[in-house]
């Protein structure tokens, strides 16, 4: 696939990120996973990505703390917040901090996939290569 969207999943639930990676790969995405903010930062120094799917509540570096660091490490990536936490305040603060959109867990995979594509398309439109 020539234009495969590169996704980085950051979530502390191992099974969650693994199955999501499996599903997205089957649908043509190029997927990497990280169990936390620091691991994600390390992965971004290896190679950039297009969309970061970011959990909020994680031990160690929380999603909220990781957001500015991830954006600094990979400015071209869009960040999609995917959280099980019902705190709309945190989500809207993260949107203000530069996240593109947020979704609430549990979220059907096709909806999440649609959101990833939408965020990616928006970026392509605003920042033409």
């Amino acid at each position: 696939m020539a234009d495969s969207i590169r996704v980085l999943i950051v979530d502390d639930e191992e099974r969650f990120r693994d199955t999501l990676a499996k599903l997205l790969s089957r649908h043509g995405f190029t997927v990497r996973t990280a169990g936390g903010g620091n691991e994600a930062l390390a992965l971004l120094t290896e190679a950039p990505c297009d969309v970061i799917v970011l959990d909020v509540k994680m031990p160690g570096l929380s999603g909220q703390q990781a957001l500015p660091l991830l954006r600094a490490a990979c400015p071209e990536a869009e960040v999609l917040i995917l959280t099980g936490h019902a705190s709309v305040d945190i989500a809207s603060a993260m949107i203000a901090g530069g996240a593109a959109d947020y979704l609430l867990k549990p979220c059907p995979t096709d909806e999440l996939e649609g959101a990833i594509r939408a965020v990616y398309d928006r970026r392509q439109a605003t920042r033409p290569r």
């Binding site: 639930e13 969650f16 099980g84 609430l104 867990k105 549990p106 096709d110």
Partner: peptide
């Protein structure tokens, strides 16, 4: 408390949702 319950239940629900999606596929 309710936000805690939501979070604790939402995480396993998220995994279940995905596993069902994968199995269906």
């Amino acid at each position: 408390l309710s936000s805690g319950i939501a979070h604790e239940i939402n995480n396993p629900l998220a995994i279940i949702t995905q596993e069902i999606d994968l199995a269906r596929e």
